[in-house]
Design a binder for these strands. Structure first.
Lengths: 191, 191
DNA sequence: GTCTATAGCTTGATAGAC
DNA sequence: GTCTATCAAGCTATAGAC
């Protein structure tokens, strides 16, 4: 029983750290947030946090990993006829801090030797696969013209999502889901 | 004459610094390039460089400013029927370092108090205006259906460009101009 | 206009006690 | 699992000589 309790506490610490990290980054901005800043808010020291995650990048990647898992679950639920890209965008609009973290970390991970690079490579592949599969499924039901290449469409939808998130950093008035839906609608027009 | 010569030398120093900054960032990556790194390659000290630009951000923004000016000139030249977004993408493909710098600096400028924020706000406005005007011009000639809202189309094309650049950081195999042309073609289909 | 020297700060990470 | 203490390194920016 002791082991169980210990392990549960450990899990709670991790949860608290991840959640707080996101909060602080949202408030101070990615570039101005240090491990110390997060630790202070958690009520722990920098060293204490690193005991759980090893490095800063591990910690941040873990935030995104958890979010991705939650997003997959949310997508599994039935919800009208909207494509995944639009549904995810609506969801993300509720958590701007997460979008900020995602964008910043991905850009940093462009460096060939960045520790988070592998995560983003894999993530890009898997997300692309989901979106492309959705397009193909709709083509079989006639919801999307067969003339549209599913992989290209997926690339467009995903890049558009990322680009809108990037632009939103500078111009917060952009409504990402709306623009995505507009684009989706244009792509769906019969040839 | 002395004044003329002095000023000309100053201009040459600035040029050399800007050019070298881009080279070094391309080689080492944005996140791993310090003023010292650039200065070393220029054959000058960090302090010497700051005499010309004041701060690091000023220097980097100046690189983008010059590039923007050159791009505007290039766009003015006649060149087939391709829309500005595609032409610019083809041009950018020749200078990946510049795309890397642009993307990184823009993300960093998302922070509300970042010194480069104003530059990107203004830039976004002006680029949007150019692209939207191009769409409207084509609508008058019949090259683009009137049912397409020009501002929305411009937002899509620009965000798509940015997003593709972002993704290219992780997956260099993406052909940005091709995807943009594909999207442009789909948007141009008559209603 | 360029240099030397350095201030002044922040950072991520580690060692070792408890 | 968490803390204290500290390291080693890095950075931008500035002061002042030349």
């Amino acid at each position: 029983m002791r082991e169980r309790r210990t392990s549960a506490q450990g899990r709670e610490s991790r949860e608290l750290i991840l959640q707080t990290a996101l909060e602080v980054i949202g408030r101070r901005g990615f570039g101005s947030t240090s491990l110390r800043d997060i630790a202070a808010e958690v009520g722990m020291t920098q060293a204490g946090m690193l005991h759980h995650f090893g490095t800063k990048e591990n910690l941040l990647v873990e935030v995104l990993r958890q979010r991705d898992a939650a997003t997959r679950e949310a997508l599994a639920e039935q919800d009208g006829d909207e494509p995944p890209s639009v549904r995810v965008a609506r969801r993300n609009a509720e958590t701007p801090a997460l979008v900020h973290l995602y964008t910043n970390l991905q850009v940093a991970a462009s460096a060939p030797d960045h520790p988070a690079r592998a995560f983003f490579e894999e993530r890009q592949r898997s997300v692309h696969a989901v979106v492309a599969a959705d397009v193909r499924a709709r083509q079989e039901v006639g919801g999307m013209p067969a003339g549209v290449d599913a992989d290209t469409a997926a690339t467009v939808l995903l890049a558009l999502s990322d680009g809108l998130q990037l632009q939103q950093g500078v111009d917060p008035s952009i409504d990402i889901a709306e623009i995505l839906a507009w684009t989706w609608e244009r792509l769906s027009r019969a040839d």
